[in-house]
Design a protein around this nucleic acid. Structure first.
Lengths: 208, 208, 208, 208
DNA sequence: TATGAATGAGTGTTCATTCAT
DNA sequence: GATGAATGAACACTCATTCAT
């Protein structure tokens, strides 16, 4: 982590113009254009250098000024959120769907965790960001939790209710655990985060 | 500012000799004293700021010059190793002991992992250092692996041989997984790394 | 400490554009201003402490931040080049001119070497930088050679062709020799680098 | 150059126990032994890393403490002097001999300069040390001058008296010029310091 | 007398963030 | 609104020199 954050500002992040509601997209065409360019650039840079890449690299790749980047994304977390919003959204939506189609709630949970792992692992360094002590990433942390925690909780609850798994692991702990398991996975082919996550979910099963 | 650090909770770091054999402890009393002071200071700083704390902080807290620190511990990894050597050693030695006393190999593994988790969780930021891509921590990484990997492997093998657990998770993957699970645990009381590690080990059990 | 350096004797460094063509001078007035200030400060510091002076001194004297200096001149060599570009340029252009006006090629060479010596001697420590084994000065070394070597070579060739001088000294050797002769000349009034260089060029004459 | 010298102390260096007179060799056998060991170590280190090598390297190679080195050679210059005293001596003695045997004084001078160049070039970095502005090398500078300058002056004078060469270059200037010509020669096979020095001496010849 | 531990100023370099233009 | 120049704290690391042991 670079973590020289000298003043986090973890605003709410619900009001973006991208997600569900069309919450006031910028009136200026060029501004909207810039935002998209930035998102593409950030995505590219994140692939190459991870989500900890210097912000300047992103601005530079997008061909816009640093100030512009900061205007659109006051925080690195805001940028990461925006870049991965769609995929997070898809992951969130997959929860209920899996619950409806899978053989059992535990199976649904397992498949959903796979999705989650895939998402994290393919995003260089993103997993590390679920760590709570990370300064300046509050917004990102909140966003992840707000969106995915309920989904995970529902899957978990269903499995508990079905008597498939133990009840003493809450969704937050599970998600953070899986998140942690994914750290460093992208850079080491010998480390199989997905399998480990599977083992972890297996471990939730009732002993009996 | 120059006062000798009285060290908040630095137990068990008094003797600085190598693991086996009294490999040439410094002949000079003051040097030995300084090394101890540094170890205490480092332990204290690590508790406060994690193992990534600036080396200067450690030197400063120990009341010695930067050069002195570098003399005794050319690398940050060397410092960390020295600080935690005893505990790592204890953890390593506990492996065979548990194997001998526990009801089953899997039980031994479970208890050993608990030990390992406790060690990592109480050391602010140390867990993160098991990540392989961390530059400049080669010595530390190697030390951990050299010392603990065989222990873990033995426990794992025993459990596999006993038919208790699946065979497709190797010791390195397991250790890295557990290590990852511990990241950030010390700063968040709601995140129960120990329990998660337990779940993970449970997940190793044969499905049947 | 923060006051704008008023620059003791820094003439002729006002325009910072590339050699040929007005290669994109910064659009921002303050940036341009800063670059000039840095050039003046660097020139002043070079006079005082030589071209090996800490970069921090230059930034400090210019009253700008370290980052600003690094932005404009990523390498110390870049800074030196910028400071002396004009004079190097003048020296380079003088070669053909002298060849056209001097009585003989050897005379032209001699006068050109005088120019070269004057340039080096007035720049504290610059001569030492022609040494090839100097790490990190590649850019500077290349610049000098790219610009002045062909000029020297032409003068040399002309004199050889005219039968005035021996042919076994190549331009690079001569330039490095003269460069070396100039080392330390600025700080010792009793050491006459110019005269020595003259003797050297005299020594090139055909024995006959 | 390293040049962090924070307190030069250019004492006289005549009184060493090595040179001509047996000026009070140390009474203690082990001390004498240490001095020799240090000389050998220094010679070896100088070949490898040049005369600017960290003093600690020399002490370490000699297997003695730093303090011992400092006791015997309070200054780096003292060490260099001691290491090369014999060869300097030989060079000094060669002057009159050459004058007696060579065809002409100029020829003697030329041969002597060859000797001098050979000495400097084979000593990694030693040539650079003749520069006058080098802090902390006063003793070395003085020694060289005291011993070799008269020799060079005599050769020069003889040639002047014989009408062979111009009279406006004094011995000091010539020696420093040759010394400078040798800088960097050992590390670049393409740079022929010896030939250049020959050209320089040739250039001293009377124009007529 | 020998040792080598300790000192700490000095240097290059990076980057998040602000704000004048 | 957009730009990107400027800031400067932060950090690791080196080594000449001193002096307690």
């Amino acid at each position: 982590m670079r973590g020289r954050a000298r003043g986090g500002r973890n605003d709410a992040v619900k009001q973006s113009d991208e997600g569900a509601g069309p919450a006031a997209p910028s009136r200026r065409k060029d501004a909207r254009r810039n935002k998209e360019t930035l998102l593409e650039a950030a995505a590219a840079v994140f692939v190459t250098s991870g989500v900890d890449a210097p912000v300047r690299d992103v601005a530079s790749r997008a061909g816009v000024g640093l100030g512009t980047l900061y205007r659109h994304f006051p925080t690195r977390a805001d940028l990461i959120i925006a870049v991965y919003r769609h995929q997070v959204e898809a992951c969130a939506e997959a929860g209920p769907a899996l619950l409806a189609t899978a053989a059992t709630p535990h199976s649904a949970l397992r498949q959903w965790i796979d999705l989650f792992v895939d998402f994290l692992v393919t995003k260089h360094g993103l997993a590390a960001v679920l760590r709570s002590d990370q300064a300046g990433f509050g917004a990102l942390h909140d966003y992840f939790l707000d969106r995915l925690l309920p989904v995970c909780a529902e899957l978990l609850d269903s499995a508990v209710t079905a008597g498939e798994i133990r009840a003493d692991i809450d969704a937050l702990t599970l998600m953070r655990g899986v998140g942690n398991l994914c750290i460093g996975a992208e850079s080491d082919p010998d480390y199989d985060a997905r399998r480990l996550a599977g083992v972890l979910v297996d471990g939730l099963r009732r002993p009996g």
